[in-house]
């Protein structure tokens, strides 16, 4: 049963990812990326990492994708204005990416014993367990990330301003 769900979610994720890079309209790319992120959230649930599944949906499929859609719509980029990539570059890119994948899979081969045991995930992915770790061992990085968000917000506002001298 879990294996069937794994296969369905994997096919959804891979098909969505391929559709992201091969669709000519940028809005369709964003929507297929949302599909891929939902499939990955399903994988998180399959691994019993409930907190990460929810955060994945809220942050990626919610916030970041809305940001992408807003940029595409505000800049009016939904028409296909992209110059086609040369065929040689496409073939070279496909070969390079395929070789990279073969290399990664080959490097992972013979990794460790017990890697063919089905992953079930105990209680480590629950909100309470992760919250305990987050607020005890990782308290300082957690607080620093708020400073990171503040600086990112200020930076985005500064970059997005039309002309800084006018204000």
């Amino acid at each position: 049963m879990e294996q069937i769900i794994f296969i369905i979610l994997s096919v959804l994720a891979v098909v969505g990812a391929l559709a992201v890079i091969f669709s000519s309209n940028a809005v369709y790319s964003v929507l297929f990326l949302v599909l891929t992120f939902f499939a990955i959230a399903g994988h998180f649930i399959l691994l019993n990492a409930q907190f990460l599944a929810i955060v994945n949906i809220i942050v990626y499929a919610g916030a970041i994708m809305v940001l992408f859609l807003f940029v595409i719509m505000l800049l009016n980029l939904n028409k296909d204005s992209e110059a086609p990539t040369p065929a040689l570059a496409r073939i070279a890119g496909a070969i390079a990416a395929g070789l990279l994948m073969v290399t990664i899979v080959g490097a992972f081969k013979g990794l460790s014993q017990g890697s063919d045991v089905a992953l079930r995930g105990g209680e480590i992915g629950t909100v309470s367990r992760l919250g305990q770790v987050l607020f005890s061992d990782f308290l300082l990085p957690f607080e620093i990330s708020s400073v990171l968000f503040l600086s990112a917000m200020i930076g985005a506002v500064m970059l997005g301003k039309k002309n800084l001298k006018d204000s």
Partner: peptide, 14 residues
């Protein structure tokens, strides 16, 4: 690995 390679492919050809 497959998803990562697809991401690399997209960066290279788009």
């Amino acid at each position: 690995s497959l998803l990562f390679a697809i991401g690399v492919l997209g960066i290279l050809i788009r």
